[in-house]
Amino acid sequence: MSIRFSFGGDEHIFAEVSEEMSLEAFFTSLSMTNAVKAAGIKGVTEICPANASFQIKFDPDRIKAGDLLKELQSMEGAASKSDATLQTRIMEVPVLYQDPWTHETLMRFRERHQNPNATDLEYAAEVNGLGGVEDFIKAHSSQPWFVSMVGFVAGLPFLYQMVERKRQLQVPKYLRPRTDTPKLTIGHGGCFSCIYSVRGAGGYQMFGVTPMPIYDPTQKVSYLQDEMCLFRPGDIVKWKPVTRDEYDAAIEAVDANRYEPMIRPSTFSLSAFNRDMAGTNAKLMEALNGR
């Protein structure tokens, strides 16, 4: 695949690896941005990988746009040939599906939704041809997801489901974005899930909430003291459905600052994944559960 470069004004180069989403496009974007980071090019001020594209911000007083573009193009061959293996992390994210807070919010914004007479989960189950909400939750939480971008707002992960394309859950965004979304809502739009890191506007369907903080600007949460944002591109996430009691217990632990997220190191190889998705995912679950 050939990268399409375009200048974003006089301070950005935008690079589209592919118009459509795929893990191959993501890995090319990540290889490119890692190569730019490693090259230490003077005048580059921001290096931002995204799902199937990336963006470089630069200071045109220090490097000419054309010179930077040539440097990026010279890295393209190596990036597309890289073996796409990542030393990464797998983490479990507890989810209270059908929680009262997103339910209250989605009822408030029903007139902006495709189906005002169903909840977001009922609608998502229906458009994916699944029997009902329970089946949808099972499909959503049974296989892991890949963090293919961090952004929109501080620390928000975009997650791409690690299954064959025909099995991927797809749900349209709200017809008009809401002005409110509870903090730590699990959302879904297009083929991506996300975790809303802060309360605010949003257009993704709302499925539930996690008790686990993922962004802490005060850096008081025990596991967010070094980095305010938990997620990095390349992290792998497994949703774990929890009951209201388990959710409340987790919130109590968060409030006492003794909550420990389950995070384990793991290796991910794109070629191994493409050869055997079920097998790769099973190994990831073993790494997560320490078996």
């Binding site: 004004g9 301070e11 935008f14 118009e19 594209s53 963006q55 952004g151 991506f192």
Partner: peptide, 12 residues
């Protein structure tokens, strides 16, 4: 008007 979610440059 939709694209696969991408970075938005400042000023875009």
């Amino acid at each position: 008007s939709n694209i696969v979610d991408a970075c938005y440059p400042y000023g875009s």
